[in-house]
Simulated scan of single mutants.
Amino acid sequence: MRTISQRELRNDNAEIMRAVEQGETFTVTRRGVPIARVTPVPAESDLRCVRPAQPERRITDRQRVVPSVPTAELLDDLRGDR
């Protein structure tokens, strides 16, 4: 079991989570006082994912917007105001 500071947990979060996935346990301290323990979830745990995270909609699923006026015409109109 490794001891890390709260700052280390914040700054090296991804690295620490990878180590936890590999089975390592960490004790988190604040000003040298232990405040938490980060451990892997055992396989036989009753924790489960109720609803996995999913993107709201994929960009490719969105309907394409087709303007009623060609883009070139809109640009010519805007450039004429210079």
Rank of each mutant, 00 (worst) to 15 (best):
P34G: 14
V50G: 10
L74C: 07
E56I: 01
S68T: 03
R51P: 05
V65S: 10
I4K: 08
L9R: 10
D46Q: 06
R48W: 05
A43F: 07
P34C: 15
R57I: 08
V33P: 07
D81I: 04
R64L: 08
V20S: 11
D61I: 04
R57W: 03
Q63H: 08
S68Q: 09
P70I: 06
D61R: 03
R51M: 12
V65Y: 15
R37W: 00
R82I: 13
T71Q: 00
L75R: 06
L74H: 03
V33H: 09
G32T: 10
D81E: 08
R18K: 15
R79P: 06
R30Y: 09
S68D: 13
T27K: 15
R48E: 09
V38P: 05
R57D: 04
V69A: 12
T39N: 06
I4A: 09
I4D: 07
R79G: 15
N11S: 07
E8C: 01
P70R: 02
G80M: 13
V20N: 09
I35T: 11
T3L: 11
V50F: 03
E21A: 05
R7G: 00
E56F: 04
T29W: 12
R31I: 00
P55V: 05
A43Y: 07
P40M: 03
T25C: 11
E24F: 03
S5Q: 04
D12P: 01
I4P: 07
E24H: 10
A19D: 14
Q63T: 09
E24P: 01
T60D: 04
L9S: 12
E56T: 00
N11W: 02
R37G: 00
R48T: 07
Q6C: 06
E21K: 08
T39G: 03
E8S: 05
A36W: 01
A14L: 02
P67A: 08
L9M: 15
D76K: 15
S5F: 09
S45F: 03
G23K: 13
T27F: 15
Q63W: 03
G80F: 11
P70Y: 09
T3R: 14
Q63P: 01
V38T: 08
E8G: 02
V33D: 13
P55S: 04
N11A: 08
A14I: 04
L9P: 12
